[in-house]
Computed example of a mutant assay.
Amino acid sequence: MRPTFPAAALAALIALPAAAEPVIEIRDAYARASNTMAGAAFMVIENTGTSPDRLVAAASDSAARVELHTHVMDGDVMRMIHVEEGFEIPAGDSVLLERGGKHVMFMGLSAPFEDGAGLEVTLTFETAGEIVVEVPVDQERMPAEMGHDTMDHGTMDHGHADHGGS
């Protein structure tokens, strides 16, 4: 008679990583255009899983280039920078992508953002993989939790970023 314990133990070990995977949920997404060539998307990314993940890329047919950006103070000037390593999404926590902070940047818009329209955005996570999100355009929205209601991407010093070309 063969022992069943080793097979059962192996099956349990194989199942463990799946239970530890991040579970990513996207909430409260919206997009705005700062001008006819650039815009941004904002949202809450929640990881309800038990291991961290990282948002590493974003893509959309709505723009020639889509990047993950944030803002940093450089002396007296707020600068927007491309965050090549992406954004960590801690286990059991959420990350707010907001105006004046972390966000998804659209450069070289394929068409102007129209209020009420939707943009299909693919978010790529290291572990969770690709998640496609329909992001509504809301040019008037000013979230209460934001705290940077007056920030304007169109007048900000974007450093060496080219927001208009491909």
Rank of each mutant, 00 (worst) to 15 (best):
R2G: 14
R2Y: 13
T4E: 13
A7T: 15
A7W: 12
A7I: 15
A7M: 12
A8E: 12
A8F: 11
A9F: 15
A11I: 14
A12T: 11
A12G: 15
A12F: 14
L13P: 06
I14A: 15
A15R: 03
A15W: 05
A19M: 14
A20W: 15
A20H: 10
E21A: 14
I24S: 01
R27D: 14
A29P: 11
Y30I: 00
Y30Q: 01
A31F: 00
A31N: 01
R32T: 09
A33C: 13
A33Q: 14
S34E: 10
S34C: 13
T36C: 01
T36I: 02
M37S: 10
G39E: 00
G39W: 00
A40E: 13
M43G: 07
M43E: 06
M43N: 04
V44M: 09
T48F: 08
T48N: 11
T48C: 07
G49A: 06
T50G: 06
T50A: 11
P52V: 02
P52A: 07
P52M: 02
D53S: 03
D53M: 03
R54V: 15
L55Y: 08
A57M: 00
A57G: 12
A58R: 01
A59T: 11
S60R: 02
D61Q: 03
D61L: 00
S62E: 02
A64F: 00
A64H: 00
R65S: 10
R65Y: 03
R65L: 08
L68Q: 02
T70Q: 10
T70V: 06
H71C: 08
H71V: 14
V72S: 09
M73P: 07
M73D: 10
D74L: 09
G75M: 07
D76K: 06
V77E: 13
M80C: 05
M80H: 01
H82Q: 10
H82N: 13
H82W: 09
V83T: 08
G86D: 07
G86E: 05
F87R: 05
E88N: 12
E88T: 15
I89W: 02
P90W: 05
A91H: 04
A91Y: 03
A91N: 06
D93E: 14
S94D: 08
S94T: 08
G100H: 05
F106L: 07
M107F: 04
G108K: 01
G108I: 01
L109H: 03
S110Y: 00
P112K: 01
D115W: 03
A117H: 07
A117G: 09
E120Y: 03
T122A: 09
T122Q: 03
T124E: 07
F125D: 05
F125P: 07
E126T: 14
T127Q: 05
A128F: 08
G129I: 07
I131V: 15
V132L: 06
V133L: 04
V133C: 06
V137M: 04
Q139M: 13
Q139L: 09
E140G: 13
R141D: 04
M142Q: 13
P143A: 07
P143E: 05
A144E: 15
E145V: 13
M146V: 10
G147Q: 12
H148C: 10
T150V: 12
M151C: 09
H153Q: 09
H158C: 07
A161F: 07
H163K: 06
H163N: 11
G164N: 10
G165H: 08
G165F: 04
G165C: 04
S166N: 05
S166D: 08
S166H: 06
